[in-house]
Design a protein around this nucleic acid. Structure first.
Length: 318
DNA sequence: CACTTGACCTGTCCGC
DNA sequence: TGCGGACAGGTCAAGT
């Protein structure tokens, strides 16, 4: 799912769409993914104005005028989709606090109901009529626009908490530097990797305590760019190559943000549209295709428990 | 402590 | 066509 570029694309979309909206109703029935009590929702979310949208690592933070924040992780298949127009099928959803009625209808690519704000060509969109069977939470605003939290696999979560307590979450206390800020120098990167010297380089850059935001796609892409085999132990990678890797991580993350992220399967932005980084991917999901650098057939192997794409010619162990 | 593996879920794809 | 197993972008807890 969403890695840093995808979450950042959702963040920038929501930052254009949500500020000054006022929450009118919240429809949720997902104790595991959204564990807040109805009392909390009534006290700190209903009637709140949206004041800003932030991102840290792969986590989205929606700040409210009540000094509370909606903290949201999309994990593998989560989507936050804003819809300006009231979908016709919204009557299938019951009122505040009661169970969400499943909509058994198939997803459609083009429809008059549930038109997405700013939607372009239908092929840009992955979501059909909302709510659908993956919809877990609906936040409705006073102007009748809605924010849908969809998540097929239910690994994602959102919770409402006091803004001041957000940095105290265990994850935020441990997470590493943001790769697209000045604090992420090659010196910092190499230094933080020293802690992981006996793990594979791929496992190390996937570790969110080393740096924030890299997932499986950009791990494979950046390691290809730096010509490092993903299964190489950190201690065996020359510092000169780690410095190239530092550059490549920043390069692929920035490029992907420009392309609106990667839609491998489920990912869509805040307007329900796909991202196009996959058209530029050099190795990820390109097994059996030629390496763009040398033409060797790209292979798929397993490293750090994850599917891993490698050019066996360009990326050799040292 | 460092590091790896399985679990969390639902859906899809592939081989038999 | 049906069924079982492997796999899918992330993170944690529990294991070695």
């Amino acid at each position: 799912m969403p890695e840093l570029p995808e979450v950042e694309t959702v963040r920038s979309g929501l930052a254009r769409l949500l500020p000054n909206k006022i929450v009118s109703t919240v429809n949720f029935d997902w104790p595991k993914g959204f564990p807040n009590s109805q009392n909390d929702i009534n006290a700190f979310l209903i009637g709140a104005h949206i004041v800003g949208i932030r991102r840290r690592a792969k986590v989205l933070l929606i700040d409210l005028s009540t000094d509370y924040t909606i903290v949201c992780h999309l994990k593998m298949t989560g989507q936050l989709v804003f819809v300006a127009k009231k979908p016709v099928l919204s009557s299938k959803f019951s009122v505040l606090g009661s169970a969400i009625t499943k909509n058994p209808g198939p997803r459609t690519q083009n429809n008059e109901a549930g038109e997405h704000f700013g939607a372009g060509h239908p092929s840009d969109s992955l979501v059909g009529v909302l709510p659908d069977k993956t919809t877990r939470v609906i936040i409705e605003f006073t102007d009748k626009s809605k924010l849908y939290f969809n998540d097929q696999r239910k690994f994602g979560w959102m919770r409402l908490m006091p803004t001041i307590q957000v940095p105290e979450l265990d994850f935020f206390k441990k997470v590493g530097p943001e790769p697209l800020t000045d604090e992420f120098t090659s010196k910092v990167f190499v230094h933080r990797l020293q802690r992981k010297k006996n793990s594979t380089i791929k496992a190390a850059i996937l570790d969110q305590t080393v740096l924030a935001g890299v997932g499986n796609i950009y791990a494979d892409e950046s390691l290809w760019g730096a010509k490092i085999h993903p299964a190489t132990k950190v201690i065996d990678v020359p510092v000169s190559k780690l410095k190239v890797l530092h550059y490549e991580i920043i390069f692929v993350l920035k490029l992907s943000i420009e392309k609106g992220g990667s839609t491998n399967k489920n990912y869509v932005n805040a307007e329900g549209k796909k991202g196009s980084y996959m058209e530029f991917a050099r190795v990820f999901r390109r097994e059996n295709l030629p390496c763009p650098n040398c033409g060797t057939t790209i292979i798929k192997i397993r490293v750090a428990g994850r599917g891993t794409h490698v050019c066996p010619t360009c990326q050799k162990h040292n």
